[in-house]
Design a protein around this nucleic acid. Structure first.
Length: 304
DNA sequence: CGGGAAGCCTGGGCGC
DNA sequence: TGCGCCCAGGCTTCCC
């Protein structure tokens, strides 16, 4: 389930394998994979053909590849102003994969989009079983806090691995909310990159319950839970990410192994590694929350 | 306007 | 063995 560490593994793989390579042809095999590209699949392919990938960047769970000026619409040499350019944006959703594959390798069953390169080397494939993810091309726009971002990313908060991440500002944003702590952690406009797995792990490490009302959270507790999220995601990244099956893989198709290090997520009825109490599973937002009932007691005033 | 929940998808696992 | 149901879950959209 790609959250920040898994997306970062993919970003690094793309930085290693597709930078400075010129796109020769793009094939869209499934229109749903480009549904966020409003002008459609043909326009998507046309905008990318002939362009060279010059950057691989990420914010939270969003990933994008910066494109050079390309042949079409190149900057006017007589003008001092250079257009900020554009990028192909990827969101992996639940099951999206970016794979670097030799051109003769058989297609994956759920191959959605294929990029072939002018150098004839390994191609880039977007494979996505559940099609929650997708690719789209966007102009880069100035972000409120500086820098250039693809338009759909402009409203996403910085993530804890961003060098400019402001911990105290993120704590303040959480405490401004009127909701449960886990809901706030999952809100990508408050802090980005955290999904269901790392939210549960961070809450366990900080000994806080998922339904803790944000308005009763102290600044210290806020800093602790965000520091825990940052730590657990850094550890997961070092392990190559978390995966429970073959759905989440790096660009070479290999799985990470952080699932062996999870303390509560998916550990219902197993002993808490701190106190031995069986880990509890609660229904939460049509999914699950895992916690230790002893280390993370439910607050008297829990947020519904 | 902010918060909450439904809806989008497919395949694996499980019970009957 | 096969059918149908449930579950996984990030994000968008809609509703209150």
């Amino acid at each position: 389930m790609p959250e920040l560490p898994e997306v970062e593994v993919v970003r690094r793989g793309l930085a290693d394998h597709v930078l400075e390579r010129k796109i020769a042809a793009v094939t869209v095999a499934h229109p749903r994979a480009v549904r966020r590209h409003e002008a459609g699949g043909d326009d998507f392919a046309a905008r990318l053909t002939g362009r060279t990938i010059i950057g691989a960047r990420r914010r939270g769970k969003y990933l994008w590849l910066d494109l050079d000026g390309g042949a079409a619409g190149s900057a006017d040499a007589s003008s001092a102003w250079a257009p900020p350019g554009d990028a192909v944006l990827a969101h992996l959703g639940m099951s999206g994969q970016m794979l670097v594959a030799d051109t003769e390798r058989p297609d994956e069953k759920h191959l959605r989009i294929r990029f072939r390169f002018a150098d004839g080397g390994p191609e880039l494939r977007f494979v996505d079983q559940r099609t929650f993810g997708g690719l789209s091309v966007h102009p880069l726009v100035p972000a409120a806090e500086g820098g250039l971002l693809p338009q759909p990313v402009a409203h996403i908060a910085r993530d804890p691995m961003d060098p400019a991440f402001d911990l105290d500002a993120a704590v303040a944003a959480i405490r401004r909310r009127r909701t449960g702590l886990k809901r706030a952690l999952l809100d990508q406009t408050v802090v980005s990159g955290i999904g269901n797995i790392y939210a549960d792990e961070a809450l366990w490490r900080a000994r806080l319950h998922w339904a803790r009302p944000t308005e009763t959270l102290t600044r210290k507790q806020g800093r602790e839970v965000l520091a825990a999220a940052s730590e657990v995601m850094a550890e997961a990244l070092a392990a190559g990410g978390t995966s429970f099956d073959a759905l989440y893989v790096n660009v070479n198709g290999a799985s990470g192994y952080f699932d062996r290090s999870l303390d509560v997520y998916g550990q219902a009825d197993r002993a808490c590694r701190r106190c031995g109490t069986p880990v509890r599973r609660d229904p939460f937002m049509n999914r699950s929350s895992f916690s230790c009932p002893r280390c993370q007691p439910r607050p008297r005033r829990a947020h519904p």
